[in-house]
Write a protein that binds this DNA or RNA. Structure first.
Length: 529
RNA sequence: GGGCCGCUAGCUCAGCAGGUAGAGCAACGCCCUUUUAAGGCGUGGGUCAUUGGUUCGAAUCCAAUGCGGCUCACCA
C-alpha cells in the first residue's frame, strides 16, 4: 500500500486505520476485536461486524503494523430461549438458564449447542479470506482466567453501579453485585448473590432450590460478569484498540457508553469504535428465522455471490448505513457492478482519476487474499448470459466452461465459482419468467398440425445441413424459409419452435439461440417432429 | 423521553473531500434487408422531503421542521 493515500478521499477502512493510529498512538502492533454470543445462527448482519474488523485489520497491516484480530465467542452466556425449528425442543427446554456450552446440540453436529453455531462460522470464514483468533469465553471463565477481573469488579461495586445508574430508569438496588452466578446445584443462573466476603468468597442463593452456598471464585468458576461489565473487562484484559459495534451498543446510554467508563476501573481504555448498521434482505422468498423475520447467513449469501463479491458488497458500502443484500434480479446488477470495478482496476475502462482510485481500493479490499491479487481480470461473461448457458447445459458447469473455449487458466477457478452461483440463483431465486430448460427427447412432443410438424422437420434439416457453416444472420433465412414453405406466419412458427425447444411461447432470439445450443442437441429434439 | 439512520428519475439505489445531478431496471424509439429479444444502439425523465443559514457556488456543510425506520432506557 502506498503512503500517498489521501486521508480525505481514502476508503473508510483506511480512514479508520489512520484514526486508530492517531488516537491509540503509533505502535508496532494493535489489537482489533469482534465477538458475539453464539446463541443462534450467526447471520449475515453479524458478519458485517466481522468483515468490518477484517477490513480495518487489513488497512492497518498495509501500513506495516502487526495486528491481532480476536473474535470472542461469548459462550458463557445463558440459554434464554429455545429457537424455533430446532429438533427436540422439549429436551432443550430443560436447559434454559444454563450456559449455552452446557446445552446439547440436538442437531448432533457438535459437542454442544454453542459450539455448533461457532463451528459453522469458523468453517466458512476462510472462504472469504478472514482468519480471526477465536477466544472462547466459557473456557476462559471456567479456567479462572478472569478471577482478577471479577475481584476488581466486586471491589468497585459502588462505582460501577453509579456508572450504570446514569442511564437506567430504575437505579440498581443497594444490594446489587456486579456478578452473576451459575448455581453449582443446577448450572442455572436463577440465583441471587447475597454477599461477598471482601476476598474471593461469594455467597449466593439458588432461587429454584432455595439453597444457599458460599463459593470461592478461584476454585468454583461459576461466576460471570454481566455484559456491561464483562465487555470493558475484556477490553482491558486484551488491550483492545478497535472494536466496532451495532447501533444497539453504540447509542447514547448503550453499552459502549457505560463500558468506556467502566473500563478505567480495570485499568484500561476504551477502544476506538465505529457503528455499523443492520443488513436487510431482499428477494429471499420467505426464509424464516427463529425470531420470525427473514434471515440469511454467510452460507446463503455465498450460494449466489462469489466470495469476492460478498466482500465487495461490504467493502463498497459505508458501514454506518443500512443496505440490503438482494437475492432477486438485483443480483445481475451486482455482478455487473463488480465487473466494472474490476475493469477499472485493470485499466480496461476509462473513468475519472478520482473514481479510479476509489474503485481500485475497493477491488483490492474485495479480494480474498490481500497479498495475492489476481494478475488478470476474471472471465467477464454477464451473469445473465451465464444463466442462459447453464440452462442450455442443464447446470453442468464443466460443459459451459468448455463451450466458452477462451477461458484462461487464471480465470477458470473464478469462473467455475461464478457458474455455480449462477446455477444456485436460477434454481433457488430466479423469477419463473427467467427459467427454462431445453426439451428432452423423453418429453411428450408438442401436439401440432401437419404443416407445423413439417415446418419443424424442415427446420431440423436446415440445422443439420447448414447451421455450422452459416452465420447467425444467414441461418435466420432458413428459419423464415421453413415457415414460408409450410404456409405459416413467422410469429406462429416462432411460437411452436419455442414450444418444441423450451416449452415456452417466447424465447431468446432464435437463430442465435439455436447456434449456441449446437446442431446435435437441436437436431435430436426436432427429430421427433 | 434520549440517540441514530434514511428521504435523489416510475422502482432499487449511487453520488456526500461543496463547483450547475448518475447507474441498473421500467418506459419509449430504432436496429440485425420479413411480425421471435432473454441481443445491440439510443431517447426521455429529477425545483436532490421542506424551510432557513454559511459560501462566489450546496444533493453535498450547519440549524429547524415533516415523513419513514432503527435503537437505548430490561437482558445480553
Amino acid at each position: 500500500m502506498s503512503n500517498d493515500v489521501k486521508k480525505e478521499g481514502a476508503h473508510w477502512a483506511d480512514q479508520m486505520a489512520e484514526r486508530i493510529i492517531r488516537e491509540k498512538g503509533d505502535k508496532d502492533s494493535y489489537t482489533c476485536a469482534s465477538g458475539i454470543t453464539p446463541s443462534g445462527t450467526v447471520h449475515i448482519g453479524n458478519f458485517r461486524e466481522i468483515i468490518t474488523v477484517d477490513l480495518v485489520v487489513r488497512a492497518l497491516r498495509q501500513r506495516g503494523k502487526k495486528v491481532r484480530f480476536i473474535y470472542s465467542w461469548d459462550d458463557y452466556d445463558v440459554f434464554r430461549k429455545v429457537p424455533k425449528n430446532m429438533p427436540d425442543p422439549g429436551l432443550l427446554e430443560k436447559y434454559l438458564r444454563k450456559p449455552i456450552t452446557l446445552v446439547p446440540d440436538t442437531t448432533h453436529q457438535a459437542e454442544n449447542y454453542a459450539r455448533a453455531n461457532e463451528v459453522r462460522v469458523e468453517r466458512i470464514l476462510p472462504a472469504v479470506g478472514i482468519y480471526p483468533e477465536y477466544l472462547y469465553q466459557a473456557e476462559r471463565y471456567r479456567s479462572n482466567r478472569y478471577v482478577k477481573g471479577i475481584r476488581t469488579a466486586l471491589e468497585h461495586r459502588d462505582e460501577i453501579r453509579k456508572i450504570l445508574d446514569e442511564y437506567r430508569t430504575e437505579p440498581l438496588k443497594e444490594d446489587w453485585y456486579p456478578v452473576s452466578v451459575f448455581s453449582s446445584f443446577t448450572d442455572k443462573d436463577n440465583t441471587t448473590v447475597l454477599g461477598w466476603d471482601g476476598d474471593y468468597g461469594i455467597t449466593y442463593r439458588d432461587d429454584d432450590l432455595d439453597k444457599v452456598e458460599t463459593i470461592d471464585i478461584r476454585t468454583t468458576p461459576n461466576t460471570k460478569l454481566p455484559w456491561r461489565i464483562d465487555w470493558p473487562m475484556r477490553w482491558a484484559e486484551e488491550g483492545v484498540d478497535f472494536e466496532p459495534g451495532g447501533k444497539d451498543h453504540l447509542t447514547e446510554g448503550g453499552s459502549y457508553d457505560t463500558s468506556k467508563k467502566v473500563v478505567e476501573i480495570f485499568g484500561g481504555k476504551a477502544p476506538v469504535s465505529m457503528r455499523y448498521d443492520f443488513i436487510k434482505l431482499k428477494g429471499m422468498g420467505g426464509k424464516i428465522s427463529s425470531s420470525g423475520g427473514e434471515v440469511a447467513d454467510l452460507y446463503d449469501v455465498l450460494e449466489i455471490y462469489t466470495p469476492e463479491i460478498v466482500r465487495y458488497l461490504f467493502v463498497g458500502t459505508r458501514p454506518n448505513s443500512e443496505f440490503a443484500i438482494s437475492f432477486d434480479l438485483d443480483v445481475l446488477k451486482i455482478y455487473e457492478d463488480y465487473d466494472n470495478c474490476e475493469r477499472i482496476y485493470f485499466g480496461l475502462m476509462d473513468v475519472k482519476e478520482q473514481r479510479r482510485e476509489k474503485e481500485k481500493r475497493i477491488y483490492e479490499l474485495s479480494q480474498i487474499d490481500s497479498d495475492n491479487i489476481p494478475a488478470e481480470p476474471g472471465y467477464q461473461a454477464p451473469f445473465r448470459h451465464l444463466c442462459n448457458l447453464l440452462q442450455i447445459y442443464e447446470g453442468d458447469v464443466e460443459k459451459v466452461v468448455a463451450s466458452l473455449g477462451d477461458v484462461t487458466p487464471g480465470q477458470e477457478g473464478r469462473l467455475r465459482t461464478r457458474l455455480t452461483c449462477a446455477w444456485n440463483w436460477i434454481t433457488k431465486y430466479a423469477p419463473e419468467e427467467f427459467k427454462w430448460s431445453l426439451a428432452k427427447t423423453s418429453d411428450e412432443p408438442v401436439a401440432l398440425e401437419e404443416n407445423e410438424r413439417k415446418a419443424l422437420s424442415d427446420l431440423r434439416g436446415y440445422v443439420d445441413g447448414h447451421l455450422d457453416s452459416c452465420s447467425e444472420r444467414e441461418f435466420s433465412e432458413y428459419i423464415y424459409k421453413a415457415a414460408a414453405d409450410n404456409g405459416l406466419e413467422n410469429a406462429d412458427f416462432f411460437r411452436i419452435t419455442y414450444l418444441a425447444l423450451i416449452g415456452k411461447e417466447k424465447g431468446p432470439k432464435l437463430a442465435g439461440f439455436i447456434k449456441v445450443c449446437g446442431r446435435d442437441r437441436i437436431v435430436s429434439i426436432l427429430s421427433r417432429y
